[in-house]
Amino acid sequence: MADPSGARKRDAESRRAKAGRIAPAGGSGMPDLDRLIHERVRLGIVSALAANASMTFADLKRLLGVTDGNLSVHARKLEEAGYVACAKGFEGRVPKTEYRLTRAGREALERYLSHLDALIRWSRAGR
């Protein structure tokens, strides 16, 4: 019997690969960055969620100063990649969307930070 969580993991991995996370270094010696979280709003979402157990859509919107549509689009891309998990519900009659960073998302941020660090060292060595 197929394992649905395994299938989900493979889907997320495939989406991340398509988005460019697993791009070749091109032999230049320069580290490659994760395009999915390199984009500023997505990097903001991941960074904010790394500092909190969870955040609501409204809090993220206020913190990052973006529009509803912009935040939705970027949050969905991160969700599709398996970097953030989204829980939708109601508080009284008001819809509430809450996001949290997944383990894959936390690892991606750590990897992105070490790539930035390597990039700084690489550019200093190249001068």
Binding site: R40, A48, A51, N52, L116, W122
Partner: peptide
Amino acid sequence: PARLEAGADERIRYIRDTMERAGTFT
């Protein structure tokens, strides 16, 4: 390389600043 380094530095500052503001937020 100099602009590369400045760009990477700016990204790191943005991550740190967002994490700090998000933490203070809640």
